[in-house]
Simulated assay, not measured.
Amino acid sequence: MNNQLNRREFMKNTGVLAGAGMIRGTSKPVMPKVGEVIIGHNSHRYKVVAGWGILDAGKNPVNDCHEMVEDAKGRLIMCTNETKNNIVIYDKSGKLLDTWGTTYPGAHGLTIFNEGGEQFLLICDNARHQVIKTDLKGKVIFKIEYPKETGVYDAPNQFVPTETAVNPKNGDIYVADGYGSQYIIQYDAKGRYIRHFGGASNEYTDDKFNCCHGVLVDTRDKANPTLLITDRMNNCWKRFTLDGKFLTVYHLPGTYICRPVLHGDYVFGAAFRSGDSSWNNSGYIQVLDKNMKVVSTPGGSVPTYKDGVLQRQHKDDPHNVFMHPHDVYVDSDENIYIPQWNSQKTYPIKLERLA
């Protein structure tokens, strides 16, 4: 059976309406135009752009669409674990510009960064148990193998990296071993080991993790940058110093959140699922302000605080826009793009920001 959605199925699954009506799940009622689907709350509401980025699956298939970044030319670069084209490059209209990569069966994490006036990528491949630095055309610069220098890893298969972050001040690389031994490993810009911290705990512990799926160097406080790290099974993000000391936690009840993504004063995250009794196709997006308060949950329930505590959230989307969002990219026009995991080999979804 061909699992790739055709255009009609995509339109149905993203909930493009045949007529006008009132959209639920927003903080204020919105009367959309014919054919529009609007999701989100408060200051961050979005219109679903139907059909964006759909390609010929025979020529350019995807499997899991994991993460997306933008280069200096405005190209949107996405990784997928489909080895016919691990890297898929779009323009913002959804047109295919280029593809490359056939040797990344576990392509999962994707980070772009500047170094010496040039841009590079870091690819986390959790099937190869490696982090690979490449240029934007796919040339391999170096590989980070399993971190035997730590003394806590005995074999490569214990290292299953999911995400990286780069400190823009000195080029240090932070690797989140989110599907492996649950450590954050810090390297210098050349890939040389500096330190590690964290580790696994099935019970909630401030300085340990149960799926440290994502990591971000949070530069909003320019004088004092810190790390935001996912603790996905505990429904939270945790803040650490750059040398690995725990600072605080931000609880996101009901939300199995992926990596934190910084855009201006806001942090965005994709929830690949929520805490619903049936978690299949239960994902949504979260938007947090500079105070780390949830202001919008596109595809999810209205964010509600009682006595300063965020109440448990869940999927609330009659149009079923999302299945399992895995990442969020925000462009210069405040539009967002969502690659999805385990979502019937569908291409990314674009949401257009409403004023």
Rank of each mutant, 00 (worst) to 15 (best):
V30K: 02
H129Y: 13
K169D: 12
G53Q: 12
C212K: 01
V321Y: 08
M1Y: 14
Q313H: 05
P325G: 04
I132R: 04
E203A: 15
D207Y: 11
P147A: 09
T230D: 00
P318R: 08
T255Q: 13
L55F: 07
D188G: 08
T162S: 10
L262P: 02
R273L: 02
H324R: 14
W100T: 08
N281S: 13
M11L: 15
F209M: 05
P318M: 12
N60S: 06
V88N: 01
D135Y: 10
V69P: 02
V166D: 00
I54C: 02
P161T: 07
I185D: 02
M22D: 04
G264H: 09
C236Q: 14
F322G: 08
T99R: 11
C236N: 15
G171Q: 07
I349V: 15
G264I: 12
V267R: 00
E149T: 11
P156Y: 12
K148G: 12
G51P: 05
V166P: 00
N85T: 08
P161K: 03
V16H: 06
S43D: 15
I39M: 13
V48L: 07
L110C: 09
K245E: 13
K133A: 09
K47W: 00
K245T: 11
V48Y: 10
N157H: 08
R45I: 15
I112K: 01
K169G: 00
M233N: 14
D207G: 05
Y266R: 09
K245Q: 15
R232G: 05
Y174E: 07
R259L: 06
K95W: 00
M1I: 09
F209C: 07
L252C: 08
G191M: 09
G116K: 11
F240A: 06
G109H: 03
S27W: 05
T346Y: 00
K33F: 06
Y337V: 05
L252A: 02
T297H: 08
G151A: 12
V309G: 03
A189S: 15
I184D: 03
V267S: 02
R195E: 11
F159L: 06
Y174S: 05
G106E: 08
D172W: 00
L5V: 10
I336S: 01
T150E: 02
I336A: 03
F10C: 06
T83F: 00
G264D: 08
I39E: 01
R353W: 12
R312P: 01
T150K: 03
V215N: 04
H263Q: 14
D307M: 10
G264N: 13
Y90T: 05
E9Y: 05
G308T: 11
E149C: 03
K133D: 10
T103G: 00
T103M: 05
K293W: 03
G109L: 02
L252R: 06
N202P: 00
D218A: 11
I185H: 05
T150F: 07
D207A: 15
T255W: 01
S278H: 07
